[in-house]
Design a protein around this nucleic acid. Sequence first.
RNA 1: GCGUGGGUAGUCUAGCGGUAGGACGUUGGCCUUCCAAGCCUACGACGCGGGUUCAACUCCCGCCCCACGCACCA
Length: 494
Amino acid sequence: MASYDDVMSLSVRRGFLWPAVDLYGGFAGFYDYGHNGFLMRRRWEDLWTETFLGLSDNYYLIDTTTILPEAPLKASGHVDHFSDLLVTCTRCGESYRGDQLLEGATHEEHEGLTPAELDARIRELKIRCPNCKGELGPARPFNMMFPLDVGPTGKDRAYLRPETAQGVYLNFRREFEALRRKLPMGLAIVGRAYRNEISPRQGAYRMREFLQAELQIFFDPATFGAGLPFDAIASAPVRIAWAAEKNQPGAHEIFPKDLVASDLPPWYVYHLAAVQRFYLDRLRVPRDAFRFAELDEKERAFYNRIHFDIQVKQESLGGFKEVGGVHYRTDHDLKGHEAMSHAKQSVTFDGSRLIPHVLELSFGVDRNVWALLDLSYSKGERIVLRLPPRLAPVSVGVFPLVNKDGLPEKAEALHVSLRKRFAAFYDDSGSIGRRYARMDEIGTPFTVTVDHESLEGKGVTVRERDSQKQIRLTESELADTLTQLLAGDKTFGA
RNA sequence: GCGUGGGUAGUCUAGCGGUAGGACGUUGGCCUUCCAAGCCUACGACGCGGGUUCAACUCCCGCCCCACGCACCA
């Protein structure tokens, strides 16, 4: 059980994460990673990449610009749907979205109005503040995207990308050609995205600059399901909370075939199972702390036909919180870019001509890092970060038992040799217990101690973080055994 | 953005209109044969800006930042 302050305090103290620019009082919505946070994050990204690119031989990482001109973001719908006109009540100060006020009054859709047009309509319809009946102030544009003026004249309107996905869609045709016209084709980006959140909150949970890891899978809906090894996931139930239950704490355990029976496409269910396996098996998230939460039609974006959030239960954030999503975006994005750019996005594959559909596996990297810090945090006599070994910033700590009799020299030599294969860290400061405690706090799974017996060729001790138990290994077997322990191929003490 | 509460070393915290104290951590040393021991040593803070005052960390104003609630989160 970790409170928000527990996680943040450890993060700051041990070099994981802290508010950016705090020298100048901070900068809301922006966080910096320290040395351990960066290592842990990179290990998460590596594991993510290995897992999801591993779903197919035709899935790859690409990297695209973080600044996009206006046109593609108009095509994607972000310029119109990500920008709202806000109207503030002059009496009670409450703010409303202009289009929603008009819709409430006329039951018609109102999009693309200028601020002046909206003001005129509000006067015409005599709309008052729904909260206090006060007079409404002038409309002002609010854009969730950060606008930029590119070039010397500043006339080329551009934005920081609000999601990495568009970079993939813009490169679909190039990659389809370069990857020799095969479907399904997967293109992933791990990179930064930017949203001008109205009120950033809860540390790394809602930030204005954040990292996404997104895999866009392009496929033919007619054949995608048949090409997937559905049997491989059929026996494991998937944890689901339906839209109506999202404020309840639990989840149903539903077998894949029953999800298909409830109208989800087999290929969609297959990917839910793959995502769940990533969380439960690779990230070692406790089963009851993981679920998919369905979004109903009102909640999901207009282009998503099917949308389940990936949620992880975090004490520090007050329960199940979104860390990613599985989105069936249909052919919305490619169609939009075709219409705007006039560049054909349809392709011929297996004898049929189509604009591929897209399944997006989307993950907030910072949110995932935070969730793992939260879940790993355990506090007894001392704080222990029970990270999965793959994610720990340091894999092996190396210590001399005492600082005399040549033990430091021997331990340092061992450290130098272990460094070639592991993220190893040497420490001879303070007592041995203190050094174990320091390693526990950053989640180092194993520590090796050189003692007097080591000088006599009787090996070294290896301590396991979670059990605090020790075994003695000869120096010749040490490296291979550590490799097996870290990979989970061997159980400690066995 | 609105409301409530808050901001003192790296972390946690005491305090006062007049020299800012502690604990833990960190540094260096002594000691030490396995889990934050002990002794010595050193480093280290009043979020920012303005005002009142002989004097402001303390009172007043503005801003920034944080948590929580509301709103927002295509």
